[in-house]
Amino acid sequence: MGRFTFALVCTMAATLGCERETRRYTELPAAANRSTAVRLTTLQPGSPQPISNVQSPYQYNAYGLAEGKRLYAAYNCAGCHGVAGGGAIGPALMDDKWIYGSHADQIFSSISQGRPDGMPSFGGHIPDQQIWQLVGYVQSLAGLVSQDAATSRNDDQIVGKPENRIEGTKQIQTGHR
């Protein structure tokens, strides 16, 4: 018994020790803590810090974007934002006006946290991974992702240009309407 306890304590100490002695200069990969630095405005006191340019892990990933597109329909996003992102109950996603910002982390927050004027909060209802996929797809609606990776048309009624033919939007406005 004593020997067993000793071994156990040693093992635990060893594991803890390994953990403790790890010097992680780089914290977690950027993707994991993206949502912390979300800003909805460029206006900052003092000298402005750069707006985070965290990107969706699926920005250049065709599979992730296609999954995003599937989820956009599966989670009824299309019902509010239009089949091709033209908007209906919710604002248009294909134009250059992004009320809560067009950066990946801003969109992530909008989906995850919800927004006060009617955007439901999907955090906890869908896994973060899928939110990131949606982020990538939503960006593709406004031409903010690589055209090579963007999805093409669906085998459905055609109501707008396929995402891989949407030219990138030049000027993105952010802010409340």
């Binding site: 093409s152 048309r153 669906n154």
Partner: peptide, 12 residues
């Protein structure tokens, strides 16, 4: 098609 088509044939 449609497995190889634009919707389900993902990527290049």
């Amino acid at each position: 098609v449609p497995l190889s088509g634009p919707e389900y044939g993902i990527g290049k």
